[in-house]
């Protein structure tokens, strides 16, 4: 048993790996390196040996594969039990889960069973020696996340328990395929169904290939609560259409019903790194900034000259979107077409 194991729960949906899992493997590789540990991918599903093999491209030293027809679809009970058993057997130091619907269903149950610490929606993860209440703790996982309405950034640690768990949203960590894949080492673990595993049946599943691809969009036009109405969001659609971008929104805009949650940018939405991000009527709370501040160029349009969004923007326009955006569209058309 290695003392510094970093695990990533590799999520698959209908046999397709979730992007977030590879992003977490890339991050997990770095964490494992900085504590001279090993990175393991936990792959649960049916006919998912291919996914286990893929994890070595992202730096896994070993994949633990639990493959069984009954595990094709995610179900809380058997997945939880498998994770609980594996953890008790191997006692890893760190486990990362995607903050997806399934990840947020599974991770807390596993943490509850194994009495581990769990921090949700981390925006950064680091290894560091920590002095806490006068005691030295070597190589702890720093779990960093905005908290409390974005008024603070908190660093959470779990000093007195062995297993440190965190969930991370898709897009927050960058996916880095290794130059040379790590050698393949797959360890298969048998699954034996028990009665309680069948207590919940998935009768139907409807998944649509998402038409929204914020992560891959080179240009994003995002609106906030400051736009005031769904109708005003039309301006953003017009602009996005003309300059070839995707429309997104802040959490406040999603909560107000101006735009769908699948287009939410920020800590609890998607993290994006486009060439150009245009923030319209967005005040710029820390949770929003966490999701867009790595854009190459940022334009902020806001009526409030003191809005914090201007602090991360390269170009700021103090003005009313209803006037500025039509002007921008017109000028763009004039100059580029």
């Amino acid at each position: 048993m290695h003392k510094n194991e970093v695990w990533v729960f590799v999520e698959q949906r209908n046999g397709k790996p979730a992007d977030v899992s590879f992003e977490l493997l890339s991050k997990g590789r770095k964490l494992a390196d900085s504590m001279k540990g090993v990175l393991k991918a936990i792959v649960i599903g049916h006919d998912v040996k291919g996914i286990a093999t893929e994890t070595f491209k992202y730096g896994a030293n070993e994949a633990i594969l639990v493959d069984h027809p009954d595990l094709k679809l995610f179900r809380t009970m058997p997945y939880t039990r498998i994770m609980n058993d594996l953890i008790k057997q191997h006692n890893p130091r760190i486990i990362l889960f995607g903050a997806t619907v399934y990840g947020r269903d599974l991770a807390p149950r596993v943490a509850s069973n194994t009495k581990s610490g769990l921090t949700a929606d981390c925006t950064d993860l680091k290894i560091s020696d920590v002095k806490y209440l006068g005691k030295d703790y070597p190589q702890l996982l720093l779990q960093i996340r905005p908290a409390f309405g974005g008024n603070i950034v908190a660093t959470i640690i779990t000093p007195d328990v062995h297993v440190q768990m965190a969930t991370v949203r898709e897009g927050v960590m960058e996916m880095h395929p290794c130059e040379k894949p790590f050698p393949v080492k797959i360890t298969e673990v048998a699954y034996k169904p028990i009665d309680i595993d069948g207590i919940l049946e998935v009768i139907e599943q409807h998944v649509e290939e998402s038409k929204v691809n914020l992560k891959g969009a080179p240009i994003i036009v995002a609106g906030g609560y400051g736009l005031g109405s769904k109708e005003n969001f039309k301006l953003l659609h017009d602009l996005a259409h003309v300059i070839g971008g995707e429309v997104a929104g802040s959490r406040a805009a999603v909560d107000a019903g101006f735009i769908g949650s699948e287009r939410q940018v920020g800590q609890t939405g998607v993290t994006v790194r486009p060439k150009l991000y245009i923030a319209v009527g967005i005040s710029g709370a820390i949770q929003h900034r966490a999701g867009m501040q790595e854009a190459k160029k940022i334009i902020a349009i806001n009526t409030d000259p003191d809005a914090p969004i201007f602090g991360v923007s390269h170009y700021g326009i103090v003005g009313d979107a209803a006037q500025v955006i039509p002007l921008l569209i017109e000028t763009y058309k004039h100059k580029l077409k």
Binding site: I156, T158, G316, I317, L327
Partner: peptide, 29 residues
């Protein structure tokens, strides 16, 4: 509670873009 708050940083968000653009036709140009 296994999770402990190790450090809290208040977020001071400052305004001020690197470059201000006038909300006019010339500005957009």
């Amino acid at each position: 509670s296994p999770t402990k708050v190790h450090k809290v940083e208040s977020v001071v968000l400052s305004g001020g873009s690197k470059e201000l653009i006038e909300p006019t036709r010339d500005g957009m140009g």
